[in-house]
């Protein structure tokens, strides 16, 4: 009982020092960052970065953009409904915003881009832009990107000297394009 009493006093003393949990904005930046890094790129660009100046600054760091993830919930919703990727791509009705968001994110990464994951909307222009600004790219997923041509693909992919992993499932690419990848 004596022990309990003393612990209770200790607790009360400590409580006097700090009774409240910290305000979110008082938390160390890397704690907030740990959450923000788990959002998709679209969510960071359209929402998280505008929440407050602190979050804006966290989002300004190029290292926040070393992974660009342009897959999102909308895709998953449609994917469950339309098994055939071509039908899906047509129905998905490419959002021009996605192209812009992706460009913006690549620009923000300031050459630190390591991993990019795009579904459906990439085209030759975007791939060219990525290849010019992402020389450190290691992993690229281009799922269902039927707008990428063999020519655009071959020219873009040559510039990724660090590329280790490439996924081009359901893209309209020929055997020749794959040979370009093999050589570079």
């Amino acid at each position: 009982l004596t022990k309990m009493a003393s612990c209770s006093i200790a607790a009360k003393e400590a409580e006097a020092e700090s009774t409240m949990l910290p305000n979110w904005l008082d938390l160390p930046g890397d704690i907030t960052r740990n959450i923000l890094e788990r959002l998709s790129t679209v969510e960071i660009v359209t929402s998280a970065c505008l929440v407050c100046p602190l979050w804006w600054n966290i989002c300004k760091d190029p290292l926040m953009w070393h992974t660009i993830n342009m897959t999102n919930v909308r895709c998953l919703f449609y994917k469950n409904h339309f098994e055939n990727p071509t039908t899906f791509s047509l129905l998905y009705n490419n959002h021009p915003e996605d192209l812009k968001v992706c460009r913006y994110a690549v620009e923000r990464s300031c050459g630190h881009l390591i991993d990019i994951n795009i579904e459906y909307f990439a085209n030759d222009d975007l791939l060219e832009y990525i290849s010019e600004n992402g020389s450190n790219l290691r992993t690229m997923q281009l799922l269902n990107c039927i707008d990428i041509s063999d020519k655009g693909f071959s020219e873009g992919v040559r510039k990724f000297s660090q590329l280790e992993k490439l996924d081009i499932s359901y893209c309209n690419l020929s055997k020749d394009s794959l040979e370009v990848v093999g050589r570079s």
Partner: peptide, 8 residues
Amino acid sequence: LAWTFTGV
């Protein structure tokens, strides 16, 4: 950022 997607 006005050009970005707003379909939240």
